[in-house]
Simulated assay, not measured.
Amino acid sequence: MRCLVIIAAAFITASLSACVTSTVDEALFNSPSKGIGDATVVILGRRHASDYETEPGFIDCVGKHITAHDPSIEVIDELSFINELYPWFEPRTAPLHPQDIELLLQKKLVAQKLQALGTRYMIWIDGSTVRSDSAGSLACGVGPGGAGCFGFGTWDDDSSYEVTIWDFNRRAEVGRINTTASGQSYMPAVIVPIPIIAPVQVTACDSVGEQLLQFLSSEY
């Protein structure tokens, strides 16, 4: 009987697959036709909203995507940048609009540090990935024959991110990207829970990273 249960679990797993749907809208202008040269880029997450924060892991994912595909682009670590320019990029003090660039650069210490870092482009990412519409149930227990679980659960993940690119040389916004991704994940369990995860956030990260590479890299 146990062999039949394991076979059934394998059949259920094989018959399910998690898929992701995504969309990307972009408006990029004044892109550097020959790449950014020796200039650096910083990617920061918006965290001034009261009901969510842009995940640091997503910011890190986008930065790694860029450098993996074009190692010539130097992406400054988010936390290092925030600490270096404390307190001007804390959630309560960070500039919210492109017109704030001029005011920011009027602060002598900020301008000096940005120049020392060689930062030309600041990329803001605002958004999050949320889980919703959970359904099903999963029960686990221990009996004379051993421990096991039985049940079936599903849930949806939805990602939505807005990206804005600021150019310190032009003192203006030079690009905007919007991406959404959604997918359904599954957790069948016949003795052993087997998660089948839809890579929603990873898909959104790759979408944003590819669009930013088209803007920043001379190889795209």
Rank of each mutant, 00 (worst) to 15 (best):
C3D: 13
V5D: 02
I6W: 13
F11S: 15
I12R: 03
L16T: 04
L16F: 08
S17A: 10
A18Q: 00
C19Y: 11
V20M: 13
T23Q: 15
D25N: 11
A27M: 12
L28T: 07
F29H: 10
F29G: 06
G37Q: 14
D38F: 05
R47K: 11
R47G: 14
H48I: 09
A49T: 15
D51Q: 13
Y52I: 01
Y52V: 09
E53T: 11
E53D: 13
T54M: 03
T54A: 03
E55Q: 03
E55R: 14
G57W: 12
I59T: 06
D60Q: 13
V62F: 01
K64F: 10
T67R: 07
D70A: 05
V75P: 02
D77R: 10
D77N: 11
L79S: 12
S80C: 08
N83S: 15
P87D: 03
F89V: 03
R92H: 05
P95L: 04
L96R: 06
L96Q: 10
E102T: 15
L103Q: 07
L104T: 04
Q106M: 14
K107C: 07
K107L: 12
L109G: 11
V110E: 08
V110R: 00
K113D: 03
L114Q: 00
L117R: 00
G118P: 04
Y121R: 07
I123T: 11
S132H: 08
D133S: 11
D133I: 08
S137Y: 09
C140W: 01
G145Q: 13
G153Y: 08
D157I: 06
S159W: 00
Y161C: 04
V163F: 03
T164I: 15
A181H: 06
A181F: 00
S182H: 07
G183K: 09
G183S: 03
Q184M: 06
Q184K: 09
Q184N: 14
S185L: 01
P188A: 00
A189Q: 10
P193L: 00
I194H: 14
I196W: 02
V200Y: 00
Q201W: 02
V202M: 10
E210T: 03
E210F: 05
S218A: 12
S218N: 11
Y220Q: 06
